[in-house]
Amino acid sequence: MTTLFAILFYLATALFVAGLAYKILDFARTPAPLSIPTTPAPTTRGGVVFRMCREVVFFESLFKGNLWIWTFAALFHFGLALVAVRHLRYFTEPVWSWVAFAQPFGMYAGFAIVAGLGGLWARRFLVERIRYISTVSDHLMLALLVLIGLSGLAMKFLTHTDIVGVKAFFLGLMRFDIQPLPDDPLLGVHLLLVATLMIVFPFSKLLHAPGVFFSPSRNQADNPREARHLAPWAAALEKH
């Protein structure tokens, strides 16, 4: 069992990192030949960074667009961020002090994750327009995330797993020194689903995470009269 999970996590990490790196490089090397920020847009680089921060941290556009989706999305993503921070303790020794500080909040953030996902999922059934656009993979993705959340919460609030053993396993993985994984079916399910999520990430709509940083309508400064934007393939047209 331990060996299987060790292999699985090496594989998942490799696919996650390589897949994501490939997509990010692909986004980055594809030219944006025309200036197309959605205006009003910041006129400077600094302004663009500020706009992007508001977009990534507060989901500014979504807030303008739909308060229900924003609320559920915020619950889910902020919850996820806190839970992710909390999980750093399984990968660091000694545990960083700010991670330790976030610990008590992270414990309950798991509920925010599941509540947010529940809201988003309910909309896929209850709102006709969103039902119309939902695909099987949209539902499966939500199912995957909900199950990760529920199995994690169960280990915290129902049946405790041997977290010292879990930590030893992951620290071991990081040092290529495989340690035994505690024998707990719930833990097994949780880890299996997380590995699945990592593998699916670069091939799915989860690409919205890196994608937002490369969105020309959000990451371009509004300065076309002052600076000449020219993609290499467009510049080549001027040669003849």
């Binding site: 997509k23 692909d26 986004f27 594809t30 556009s61 979504l62 667009g65 739909n66 989706i69 999305a73 988003l120 909309r123 709102v127 327009r129 969103i130 656009i133 939902s134 695909t135 949209d138 709509k205 690409l207 919205h208 994608g211 937002v212 490369f214 969105s215 020309p216």
Partner: peptide, 12 residues
Amino acid sequence: KVYLDACVHCGA
């Protein structure tokens, strides 16, 4: 490329 990849069908 980015727009075809990034949509999550949120419905906003």
